[in-house]
Design a protein around this nucleic acid. Structure first.
Lengths: 141, 141
DNA sequence: AAATAAATGAGAATAATTCTCATTTATTTT
DNA sequence: AAAATAAATGAGAATTATTCTCATTTATTT
C-alpha cells in the first residue's frame, strides 16, 4: 500500500478517499475483479462513491502500472493489482480465469526491447483453452 | 480460404454470403481490424449485410479458432485471422498495435497443459509499453 | 423440388464505459 | 492556519459497443 500510494503522489495525483478505498479493495482481492464488483465494494467502505470515479480510478491505476486488466471469455474486463508477473488460463467453456505462475519474462522483455526498439513495461500472457474441470465434465458425458 | 471454409462446414455451419464476405475481408487484412471496420468492408462486398451478423460471424469464427481478438490501448476490440502464432506490442502512448514474431510457444503450451491439466488451444502474448516512434518523439521535446 | 434447421436483417434493448458540469476537496502557498 | 488553486468528485445524461428478438429468408439435406 505505502509503495503504491507513494507512486500516486510522486506522479502528482491526489490521495482521495475513493482512491484509497479502491486500492484497499484491490489489494484485498486475491482474485481479479470486475469494475462493477470493485465499485460495490468501494461503496461499502465509502458509500458516497460514484461509479464514474471508479472507472476514472481504474484508468489512472492502469496508467501508473498499479493494476492490469484482462478480458474474460465473454469479453468483460477484469482488474487486479499488478504485483508479481503471472499469466492467465482462460477457459473457453466455462469462462473461468485462473492465474498461474509466469514464465521467465525478464529475458523476453529485454529481447523484445532490443529487437523492436520498444520499451516493454509489462508482458501479459493468456492461454486460451479448456480447463481441467470442463475436461472432466466432458468425459462424463 | 479453402481450409477455413472446410472447418466451417465440418463443424456443421452454413456457408453464407455474409460469412464468405467476412472471411475475404479478414484474409485480406494484413492488419488487425475493428468490428466496425470489418462491417463496413463487408458491406462494400455485400451491401445488404447487417451489423448483428458481423458480430455473430466474429463470435463464430472465434469459437472455431479461425480468428482471435485483442484489445487496443483504449479497450476497443481488434480482430484478425489466426494464422501463425504471433505476439503483439501495444503502445501506451499512441495506442498502436504491432504484430511481432511469436516466441517458441509450443513447448510452453505443452508445459502448461501438463502442469495445470488445461488443454491449451491458443496462447496470446502482449507486450505493453512505449513504441519506438513515441520514444523518439519524447526525446525531441 | 420440398422440407428443415440454421442464418439473416432490422431495429430495439442492454450493458459497459465515458462525458459534462457544477461542486467539493487535497495540497500548496502564503 | 487560512486562502488560493488545480485536481477530483458525484450524479446523471450521453455514448458506444454489443447482444437480443422475431419475422423472414436461405443453404443444405432429403
Amino acid at each position: 500500500m505505502k509503495v503504491v500510494v507513494a507512486r500516486l503522489k510522486e506522479s502528482g495525483h491526489k490521495l482521495t478517499p475513493p482512491r484509497v478505498a479502491a486500492l484497499e479493495v484491490l489489494i484485498d482481492s486475491s482474485e481479479h475483479i470486475s469494475a462493477e464488483e470493485l465499485h460495490s465494494k468501494i461503496k461499502s467502505k465509502y458509500p458516497g462513491a460514484g461509479l464514474a470515479t471508479t472507472y476514472r480510478t481504474l484508468e489512472l491505476l492502469k496508467e501508473l502500472d498499479i493494476v492490469t486488466s484482462l478480458d474474460d471469455k465473454r469479453g468483460k474486463k477484469l482488474y487486479e493489482m499488478k504485483t508479481r508477473d503471472h499469466s492467465h488460463l482462460i477457459c473457453r467453456s466455462c469462462g473461468d480465469v485462473t492465474e498461474i505462475e509466469a514464465d521467465s519474462s525478464a529475458k523476453k522483455k529485454a529481447e523484445v526491447g532490443q529487437r523492436y526498439g520498444f520499451e516493454v513495461v509489462d508482458c501479459q500472457v493468456e492461454y486460451h483453452g479448456i480447463c481441467a474441470d470442463c475436461l472432466h465434465t466432458k468425459e462424463e458425458d
